[in-house]
């Protein structure tokens, strides 16, 4: 197992209530998994225990079989596990975009030339124009540009596990889709393990092979997107929705139409509806 959490508890301060209450979870190398749950369910806290930013109050976090607290240095953990925070402005602090993205790689002791190369590649990857933006202050970027810069800073370190906490919030729709396409590419072509936190169920359903559903500090459901979104009513009970197109299919089924509900792409849903409504088409005018 690449990453394993065993009965992890976490509370921010002694005497306060537990935010994580016995989390058990495993991620295999090369998997693309998604973590979903409503605000306050503990997602951001959970992923911070995986890159060593937070130390569990009890329980174990293991990477490649070794407990994080036994690693020689936190830098080595950060190199393996890249975390893109929910609020990108918390991640930007240098005076230029270049320095910001180069910050991680510098700590790894790479040469100037290598660093420049990685920064360029990473900016390219998130679609920030290197020449135009490298010398600008990160604080003068638009919201979506800041988000991209924060992601580039993590990618430049070439982590083996990439954790993205709501990476698409604040991105325009096209940017959102392209970024997710590229993350899928990293996973499929480069073998990078991905953990995506997203409020958008359609993204989790379409992108990930496996979903973890969190509620009140615990993993309450896990399985393939098909398995998870079959449990529509259970999800509603803990404040989650199913993807909008699946909501259409579910409601059709409730009206008595025997449509499939275990499909997620717009093409498949279109085909499924047309299959049942074929008789009602008229030729296009």
């Amino acid at each position: 197992m690449f990453v394993e959490l065993k009965d992890v508890y976490y509370r921010y301060q002694a005497g306060e209530e537990d935010i994580l209450r016995g989390v058990n979870l495993g991620i295999e190398k090369g998997e693309f998994v998604a973590l979903v749950g409503h605000t306050g369910s503990g997602k951001s806290t959970l992923v911070q225990t995986i890159n060593g930013l937070l130390r569990p109050s009890s329980g174990q976090v293991l990477i490649e079989g070794r407990e994080i607290k036994e690693w020689e240095s936190p830098i080595m953990v950060r190199k393996k596990v890249g975390l893109v925070f929910q609020y990108p402005e918390h991640q930007l602090f240098e005076e230029t975009v270049f320095k910001d993205i180069a910050f991680g790689p510098k700590n790894l002791g790479w040469s100037e030339k290598e660093i420049k190369e990685k920064v360029k590649q990473a900016m390219d990857f998130v679609q920030l124009d290197y020449e135009e933006l490298k010398d600008r202050s990160p604080f003068g970027l638009s919201g979506g540009q800041k988000r991209r810069a924060a992601i580039a800073g993590v990618l430049a370190m070439e982590p083996e596990l990439l954790i993205l906490d709501e990476p698409i919030a604040g991105l325009d729709p096209r940017g959102r889709r392209k970024l997710l396409d590229r993350i899928n590419w990293l996973n499929e072509e480069q073998g990078i393990t991905v953990l995506l936190i997203s409020h958008r169920m359609e993204d989790a359903a379409r992108r990930a092979q496996k979903l973890f559903v969190m509620n009140q500090g615990q993993i309450v459901l896990q399985g393939s997107p098909q398995e998870i979104f079959e449990q529509r009513d259970e999800l509603y009970e803990i404040g989650l929705e199913i993807p909008p197109l699946n909501e259409v299919l579910w409601q059709l089924r409730k009206c008595g139409y025997p449509v499939r509900t275990d499909i997620f792409t717009i093409e498949d849903v279109e085909e499924e509806i047309l299959r049942h409504w074929r008789g009602f088409r008229c030729s296009k005018i």
Partner: peptide, 17 residues
């Protein structure tokens, strides 16, 4: 981009529904 449901409707209309 259009939201998911209006986009699906657009496609279904194109297909003749």
């Amino acid at each position: 981009e259009l939201p998911e449901v209006p986009y699906l409707v657009y496609r279904l209309r194109e297909a003749g529904l």
